[in-house]
Each structure stands twice: as structure tokens, then as C-alpha cells.
Design a protein around this nucleic acid. Structure first.
Lengths: 111, 111
DNA sequence: ATCTTATATCGCGAATATACGATTAATAAA
DNA sequence: TTTATTAATCGTATATTCGCGATATAAGAT
């Protein structure tokens, strides 16, 4: 009863979907926004900035890290995170590859 | 027992997350790719192009339409869909607003 | 050694998402 | 009118996500 048959799709399709999934929750968008607005790693603070419990924030951070969107180090009772801009560039590139460069010739309206 | 407390986040954060959610499944990426590669609405065909059952494809189309990513009309036993490029532009704009324009000053590496 | 602090992980309940087959709906074709 | 054809919807099983409290972990402070 193979639910989730994502393997029936191409690597590019899976990759883009995987990336989008990481962005698909407002809490993760909010975390990324905070990280993007600073010039340094954020150590702590994040829990205070979000309307979520500490364990929940930690989970979202884990997902973002798993998706490669953020880098992080955990030194004992303190952990630091910052955005991985290269991953964002990669996403933009793939996204544009699939859609944006096709846009011009499709400008005409259909339905 | 408010699960999914997305209302605790800003409209922009929710909007971007909602859009990303629509892109977060390879089947939907594949559908959008097909629609993008044509100059016209696609009437039918989609089910044949995807490794999914008809009802499943229909569900994904519904989600894409609900997210505003595609336009569609259903005339009796035939339905047509095409990409809504304006929605893509809006996504790009919001995405860049939150992240890309912050990138330059953050180019330095941290962790 | 003990206490404090900050983070990660575990376990659970509730909500969503995925997928399919079966059914319904709506038009075209006979 | 009856018969296809095509797409949407319903019902359902299963998987995944979300959120939290409780617990574990790991280092610094006392």
C-alpha cells in the first residue's frame, strides 16, 4: 500500500519539493527571517522570539538543518545557527530552471 | 488544543509558507512543469503523464488551484488547466523580499 | 560533586496529507 | 434514450506533521 510514491518522480522534482517542504511552515519562515536579518549566528534567543515551546522550536530547527537551509553547531548547552545561503542559491537556480526561464514565451493568457 | 498555530505568525510568513506547501510534493512540481512547458492549457493528458491514479491527480490539481498556482475550467467531462504566472511572480517577490535582498550584506561566512 | 542553564530527544495525542478504489456528475456520441 | 468518456468527490487506510510536556544531555558555575 505504498503511500508516498515520491520515488516515481525525478531527482529534480523531488529535490525541489523537499526544499519547498522545509519552507512550508510559517514558524520555519520566521526562523529563517530572523537568521537572515542578522550578520551572525544566532545562539539562543530564537525560542524567545517565537510563539512556540522550546521543544517545538528545536524540531523546526532540526528540519531546517536537515534540509540544508541552515548551518548549526552545538557546543554543550549552547547552539548556534545561521543561514546557508548556498542552499538558497541552489533552490533559486532549480526553481528558475523549472519555471522562470519558461515564463517569457508563455506570457500569453490562456484559461 | 490548538494544533497548527499558524495564526500566531504574520500574514507574509503564512502566505509564503502556504505557497511553499503547494510546491512541496513532487507530483505537484511535475504537474507544474508540464503546464509550464506548453503554451496552452492542458486538457486531460495529465493523468497519463503521471504515475498516479486519476483521483490522486485530481486532488493535487485541486490543491494547486486552491493555492492559486494554476487556473482551471471544467466544462462537463473535460477540464483544462494552465499555470497562473502572476502567482509565481508574487511568490518570487515575497521570497526575495524576505531573503534574497538580505543576501549581499550577509555574504560573510559564519558557522 | 552539585546546581544551573540551554538544547536535544522521547513519547504521545490530534490534525493533515497521501493514495486508491468506488461512486457520482456532466457532457458527448450512438 | 442509452452508452461511453472524463473528471470530481467520497470513503477509507495509512503515513506524516505539529505541538507539547517530560526527560535526557552537556557544559559552565558554585
Amino acid at each position: 500500500m505504498a503511500i508516498h510514491k515520491k520515488d516515481a518522480f525525478t531527482q529534480k522534482e523531488q529535490g525541489l519539493a523537499f526544499f519547498a517542504k522545509a519552507l512550508s511552515h510559517p514558524a520555519r519562515i520566521a526562523i529563517l527571517k530572523v537568521l537572515a536579518q542578522r550578520n551572525e549566528c544566532i545562539c539562543g534567543e530564537l525560542v524567545d522570539l517565537l510563539p512556540l515551546a522550546q521543544s517545538t522550536v528545536s524540531q523546526h530547527l532540526k528540519e531546517l538543518k536537515n534540509a540544508g537551509l541552515i548551518n548549526g553547531e552545538t557546543d554543550g548547552p549552547r547552539s548556534c545557527f545561521c543561514i546557508n545561503w548556498k542552499a538558497f542559491e541552489k533552490f533559486n537556480a532549480e526553481f528558475n530552471f523549472l519555471f522562470a526561464n519558461l515564463k517569457v514565451k508563455n506570457e500569453k493568457a490562456c484559461c
